[in-house]
Design a protein around this nucleic acid. Structure first.
Length: 476
DNA sequence: TTTTGAGTTGTTCGA
DNA sequence: GTCGAACAACTCAAA
């Protein structure tokens, strides 16, 4: 009997364009797909952890539909892997590469250890379009500005996605598996799971529906419509992409086809995929982007990290309808429109002078499409301390933004129950999702703006002015 | 080596 | 109401 191959499943919950599974299937050996809930899973924020659980469940069903299964284990990944190797007699372990520094370290250690045991451990690409080490500036560095990176990679060959794995040879007997329910991945969601659960679309088939729908229509108007939060103009695929229910390569190829067919928004869509690459390449090259100011000079900036204003921002009670609608959208649906993300980030870091990490952590708890690299880069970009960041004087005015991008007020009307025009089920569901301790009711009076936008802006500009002076003063 | 041009997403003010 | 300038100066990428 040929020895089985273990395929370590991580953020790659799909059967199409899955290099490790495809490779394993081609060997003619039994294949044992394994998911290990190690610290990287257990320490996820509430929403992504819960959503990951739903994805794992769906993926297990897909595997079962082709005669395979998914073995669940929890604890230290190396220890679990060694156990599985002993139990199954496997001689090979395949997985799809990760790029977050801690995970890279973990994988390196495990690969070295397994190879030393005579086990063939092999990692495959698939999470990114371009491996970080193959994208370089002409002088051999990595890109710190988006546009030159885009110009470098836009015409590169990516290749077609791998075909869907149709069947996987099952082992003679399956190793024991944890019960997914015992992991309680959704526990921290509390009441939120029911509400957010109405808005997620889980699994590879759902991702396929989304990409079909998007490329059937919205793609042609993506460039102009994607800035308007009340228009269904985006693909919404970030939720699936982050768990690997669709691969970036599948999305890239769809975008390239649309480009050839002359779809106006195709280039903008492809650019968004490269923004994700940009974030991962930065995390690869400068890991501190995940945990501290990318521009180290900013360590002296006097950001606040606590205060009642932060709670009101989280609750969507700032008195700025655009900000509040966005924060409600986040809590109700587990996602937030891209333009809204910029606005709430600018408001928190500039108008309220709050540390970007406060926002980063809140998003990490609430976003079902949470991605460590994109989230960190996005917040640092908004705050001004990141790569290719917004200049300090670029303070979004939520009220002007509303006028520009949501003239009719449809966005607050959908998500803000306290305002008179809103009465829908979606807006009301916020109060079923939030902690009871917040003590909020749809009958509450909608608050006055908690700060004056003009004052907030002036204060931000002054502080950023001070930052500049302090950096200059400390430069020697 | 030096130089040059450019850089996701904005706002406000005054002509 | 529309439009251009000012808001600053710095870093990056490439020639």
């Amino acid at each position: 009997m040929v020895k089985p191959i273990l395929v370590w499943i991580r953020r790659d919950l799909r059967l199409t364009d899955h290099a490790p599974l495809a490779e394993a299937a081609s060997h003619g050996a039994p294949v044992i797909p394994v998911f290990i809930a190690d610290d990287h899973v257990i320490q996820l924020g509430a929403a992504p952890k819960w959503r990951f659980g739903l994805g794992i469940e769906a993926f297990r069903e897909s595997l079962r539909s082709i005669g395979s299964d998914l073995v669940l284990r929890s604890g230290n990944a190396l220890i679990q892997m060694e156990k599985l190797i002993r139990e199954t007699g496997a001689e090979k372990v395949f997985w799809q590469r990760a790029y977050i520094p801690e995970q890279v370290e973990r994988d390196k250690r495990i690969k070295a250890k397994l190879n030393a045991m005579g086990i063939k451990a092999r990692s495959f690409p698939g999470h990114l379009l371009f491996e970080p080490w193959i994208v370089e500036t002409k002088t051999g560095g990595f890109y710190k500005v988006f546009t030159p990176m885009w110009n470098t990679v836009r015409d590169r060959e990516v290749g077609p996605p791998l075909p869907t794995v149709q069947n996987l040879k099952a082992p003679k007997s399956w190793p024991v598996s944890d019960d997914l329910a015992d992991w309680q991945l959704g526990r921290a969601m509390n009441r939120g799971a029911v509400v957010v659960g109405r808005h997620v679309k889980v699994g590879e088939a759902a991702a396929g529906d989304r990409i079909d729908r998007f490329f059937d229509g919205p793609i042609s108007k993506y460039k102009q419509d994607r800035d308007f939060p009340s228009i269904e103009a985006t693909s919404r695929l970030s939720e699936n992409l982050t768990y690997g229910e669709i691969s970036p390569k599948q999305m890239w190829n769809a975008g390239k086809c649309a480009l050839q067919a002359g779809a106006a928004g195709a280039e903008t869509f492809l650019k968004e995929l490269v923004w994700r690459e940009f974030a991962y390449h930065l995390a690869w090259n400068t890991p501190h982007i995940l945990t501290r100011n990318w521009k180290l000079d900013w360590d002296r900036f006097p950001w606040k990290t606590d205060g009642s204003q932060i709670e009101r921002w989280q609750q969507g009670r700032t008195g700025e309808p655009f900000v509040d609608a966005a924060m409600r959208e986040l809590y109700i649906t587990g996602t937030m429109h891209n333009r809204a993300r910029m606005i709430v980030a600018s408001y928190l870091t500039k108008n309220l002078l709050t540390h970007w990490q406060v926002g980063q952590k809140w998003f990490e708890q609430c976003l079902v499409d949470w991605d460590p690299a994109s989230n960190a880069m996005g917040w640092q970009w908004a705050a001004g301390c990141g790569p290719d960041a917004a200049p300090y004087f670029r303070v979004f005015n939520p009220s002007t933004q509303l006028e520009k991008f949501d003239k009719t007020g449809a966005y607050p009307a959908k998500f803000l129950a306290e305002t008179s025009q809103a009465s829908g089920e979606t807006a009301a569901s916020f109060f079923d999702a939030v902690p009871r301790s917040w003590d909020l009711s749809p009958k509450d009076k909608y608050p006055e703006p908690m700060i004056s936008l003009a004052d907030g802006r002036a204060r931000a500009l002054a502080a950023y002015q001070g930052q500049k002076t302090s950096m200059a003063g400390n430069s020697c």
